[in-house]
Design a protein around this nucleic acid. Structure first.
Lengths: 224, 224
DNA sequence: AGGTACAGCCTTGCGGTGTAAGGTTGTCAA
DNA sequence: TTGACAACCTTACACCGCAAGGCTGTACCT
């Protein structure tokens, strides 16, 4: 009697994972942040309300998105010493946050961590513990390290240009309508650094990371 | 002929500053973040669209809010050495961001800094420069310091409880439905630290800050 | 074979959002 | 007196998250 339009529907029903994947992809494409339920549904060839069968509300979906970003982050290996392990997972973390710029803003509004997030934290703690840190010392190290990683990435994302792009043009434009006599040090810094052809803000990350890691190494045995 | 209902209107017309003040207050009260234009207008006894006579769009209002937070931050004084000056302005910065939790989330979406923001950065740069840092060294120091401050505060704000509040209760609740055999290190850490009566996450800030400042002091003369 | 339970999806509708377009009003200078 | 003009309001639109409830194909039981 009727045709069989439901075939396609039945063939590929949507799932938590498929929805999350689409949501992440959509958020990555539009720099405007998280997609709306309606646009997300449209992308999946589905009505908006269907998504609520897989997620209790939008907040749950956001939780899932954040967790899927953590899932992309390389866990610290136990083969290397803790410093190189931390260096690698820090770079991986920063890369993931840069690939998904919406994630860092999302992170601070979510309070219930997912499994990938828990696994990540557990692995990092384990790495530091077997690297010789006490429990309290691990807490200190985690606080400084993650604080630095998130904060640096946050700053980098708020820069008014793409990281490798023409810093000269933007820097010059800022310099032009900046009252140089009112903010002399700021003007000097932009002039000296940002306009230097070779300057890449991204490299600052490693400078700070090394500073933090050196400090941790020095304090490690003092932290009982 | 008509009565004079406009008297109150004429007596206190709204201004950029009054709108900003109300917006900040409203954002502080409701933990839900930035107020909508309508609720903000209602608070001011005005219709929503009236606000657009003082701000080109909502983004401009948000810029103003962020700038007004920077205006609250204590500028580094030139009387003390750079380390204590940085320690004081860091604490002041963290306090401001804690008073206005919505600000840090807002910061990364704004790209055009206001006057108070520029003044703040200029003063910090000046303090480091006269503390003996080269231009490049100041850039490094700024990157690490601000990164740490923002990142730490971001983490602190995303904790699922009020900083001084009952960590025991929440920690215990988390511990209960956490698969301890799957995340042993995480469980150990929560058990050992968070449930300790004396533990206050806030104090972690100073531990990390001292670590960063010590590192900066050590690297200062190496950075040409 | 017939009945029933149910997961998956859709429809409708509500109260909220930012803001474009244009109307109204009080003030002040010419 | 007139006109310009800033401040403010009204209306309207397209979007948002989501509560409530309807429909339909599948699966299992008797």
């Amino acid at each position: 009697m009727t045709t069989e339009p439901t075939e396609t529907t039945r063939r590929n029903p949507l799932s938590r994972e498929k929805v999350l994947q689409a949501a992440v992809a959509l958020a990555d494409e539009s720099g405007t942040g998280v997609p709306s339920m309606r646009t997300l549904a449209k992308r999946l060839g589905v009505e908006a309300m269907s998504l609520y069968h897989h997620f209790r509300n939008k907040s749950a979906l956001l939780d899932g998105m954040v967790d899927s970003v953590f899932a992309e982050v390389e866990l610290p290996s136990n083969d290397a010493d803790w410093q190189t392990a931390m260096r690698r997972r820090s770079a991986s973390m920063r890369d993931a946050l840069t690939r998904h710029p919406w994630a860092i803003t999302l992170m601070d509004s979510r309070t219930s961590p997912g499994r990938a997030t828990l696994r990540h934290h557990n692995a990092v703690i384990g790495c530091l513990r077997s690297g010789g840190f006490s429990v309290a010392g691990t807490a200190h190290a985690l606080s400084v390290l993650d604080g630095y990683i998130y904060g640096f990435t946050l700053q980098q994302l708020s820069l008014p240009f793409e990281p490798p792009a023409d810093l000269e043009g933007v820097g010059g434009a800022i310099l032009e309508n900046l009252p140089r006599d009112e903010f002399p040090h700021l003007a000097e810094m932009i002039a000296d650094l940002a306009l230097q052809p070779g300057y890449a803000y991204t490299e600052e990350f490693d400078v700070g990371l090394d500073l933090v890691l050196d400090g941790l190494e020095r304090e490690r045995d003092r932290w009982t």
